[in-house]
């Protein structure tokens, strides 16, 4: 639907402005997996307050918006086994690849980084094949 595309573009601009502020003001790359993962595996504790503050904003502001205007469901599958397996794959994969949709996708592609482009091709490709296999062929999701 075109309305969804316009909202996608507007939301995307906000995400890009967030990344631009983090780069130009704090001098850092806005990658969600690196920020969270650096706290989890203790490799990025040097600026833990900065990381924790960003995570707090990422968590609290959507909570306030949904309280004010109502909740848009996530429509996450209620098969918790699939959810748990997916979470482990996302956690392991983004940390081995050193980036996710925000780090490699948004921040990497925007500076024409070959690593960002290659990572994005592979995670979108693997995601597409996963949906084909588990939705259309196996009917699990």
């Amino acid at each position: 639907m075109p309305t969804d595309w316009i909202m996608g573009l507007l939301g995307g601009l906000l995400i890009g402005i967030a990344g631009a502020i983090f780069l130009l003001v704090n001098g850092r790359v806005m990658g969600a997996s690196g920020i969270v993962g650096g706290l989890v595996d203790r490799s990025g504790l040097g600026n833990w307050r900065e990381k924790a503050s960003l995570i707090a904003g990422l968590l609290i502001v959507p909570a306030i918006i949904t309280l004010a205007v109502g909740v848009t469901p996530t429509y996450l599958t209620d098969n918790l086994l699939v959810v748990a397996i997916a979470g482990i794959f996302v956690g392991v994969g983004t940390r081995i690849a050193n980036g996710c949709t925000s780090g490699h996708g948004v921040c990497g592609i925007s500076r024409l980084s070959l690593r960002g482009i290659v990572a994005t091709v592979f995670y979108i490709g693997a995601g597409g094949l996963t949906v084909l296999l588990f939705k259309h062929l196996l009917g699990v999701i």
Partner: peptide, 21 residues
């Protein structure tokens, strides 16, 4: 690591439709 990690991430992303952010 970049390729293997991205493939693993893509599988999880496809299964649930969620990434870290």
């Amino acid at each position: 690591k970049l390729v293997v990690g991205s493939v693993l991430f893509g599988i999880g992303w496809g299964l649930a439709g969620l990434c870290p952010g």
